[in-house]
Structure formats: structure tokens, C-alpha cells
């Protein structure tokens, strides 16, 4: 009996993550933060912004900024073709589009499967990392995407709101 109960509680604690690749690294983000995945097209440039902010797109009447993570973290080749994918994130009040190399999988992880990240020289500042998780043979870096996207470093939000 107790074992069954234990397994059900474990079941409910499992969270699902979407994994994507940037260069040779694999990243995982909370799937509840993902609104949709779509192709890359018709981005309107915004003047005087860093190169990784590609501009804004029309998402069914809503104007949403697009960030190219490959440019931001100098990973992979920033080419734009019909295979370029964009993950639309829904972060509370805000919607942000994020260009990555490719979207791989949806994985379920128990909290204990996510091990704290060692203080290694990651591309992402460790304050935005939740930890590391192994997915079969590979390893995924679990990122707190909301914290990263709303950070001052990304420059997506007016600084007054951030501080």
C-alpha cells in the first residue's frame, strides 16, 4: 500500500520539460512556460537594439519581441531558413519569442532527477540555471527561462520594471 501511495505522489510531482538545442548543448525549460512553437518569419527590425533582439512579430494581433538565443550566447549558426524554429514563451504577463537551433523532445523529470549544477563555466550564468538532468545518454541543462528572459541582461523589459 505504502509503495503505491509513494509512487502516485511521485507521479504528481513529475514535471514536464521541453528540450531544445543550442550548438552542442541541450537545454530544458518548463513546458508550462511554452505557449507554442512556430517557424521563423516576418520579423520587423527594431532600431538601435543589440543584434540578438531580432525585432517584433505579429502573434495573432499581439506584438511580441523575438530573441535569437544563438546570437545572444554565440552558439550554433544563426541562419534563417524554413527549419528555423521559434519557441513562444508565456512568462506571466509577457510573451517572448526565442529562436533556437532545434526543438528536440518533451521529457518528464522528477525534482530529484534534477541535480544542482556545479559552478562550471556554462554559457548561461548559473543564477538562471535550475540544475542538470540526464536524458538517456545525454545531459540537459535545466534553465529558469522566466528569470533569464526578464533579467536585465536580456534588455527585454524596461529597467524601471526590473529594479
Amino acid at each position: 500500500m505504502t509503495r503505491v501511495e509513494e509512487s502516485t505522489t511521485k507521479q504528481t510531482e513529475t514535471e514536464e520539460f521541453l528540450t531544445f538545442t543550442l550548438g552542442s548543448e541541450e537545454y530544458a525549460i518548463d513546458i508550462l512556460k511554452v505557449q507554442e512553437i512556430r517557424g521563423y518569419d516576418a520579423v520587423t527590425k527594431i532600431a538601435n537594439t543589440p543584434d540578438y533582439i531580432k525585432g517584433v512579430i505579429n502573434m495573432r494581433g499581439v506584438i511580441v519581441p523575438v530573441v535569437d538565443m544563438r546570437l545572444k550566447f554565440h552558439l550554433g549558426n544563426a541562419t534563417y531558413d524554413q527549419f528555423t524554429v521559434m519557441i513562444i514563451l508565456n512568462l506571466g504577463q509577457r510573451i517572448v519569442g526565442m529562436v533556437v537551433d532545434s526543438v528536440s523532445d518533451v521529457i518528464a523529470l522528477n525534482p530529484e532527477e534534477i541535480r544542482p549544477a556545479p559552478d562550471f563555466g556554462s554559457t548561461f550564468d548559473t543564477q538562471y540555471l535550475i540544475g542538470l538532468a540526464s536524458v538517456g545518454e545525454r545531459m540537459a541543462i535545466v534553465v529558469d527561462i522566466e528569470k533569464l528572459m526578464t533579467s536585465q541582461e536580456m534588455g527585454l523589459i524596461d529597467q524601471i520594471i526590473v529594479s
Partner: peptide, 26 residues
């Protein structure tokens, strides 16, 4: 449409709109 809803204020730009072809124009 406001740019600030999901982004931030952009200097020299007062807002945005959506054109007939679905693209955003500032």
C-alpha cells in the same frame, strides 16, 4: 498597438501596427 505590452519602449517609435500582409510596422 503598444510595443510595451511585451517589450519595452523604443526611442523614436511611438507604437506599432499590423499591416495587411500580417507584418508588424512601427
Amino acid at each position: 498597438k503598444s510595443l510595451e505590452t511585451h517589450y519595452r519602449k523604443v526611442e523614436g517609435i511611438s507604437g506599432a501596427t499590423i499591416m495587411g500582409d500580417g507584418r508588424v510596422a512601427l
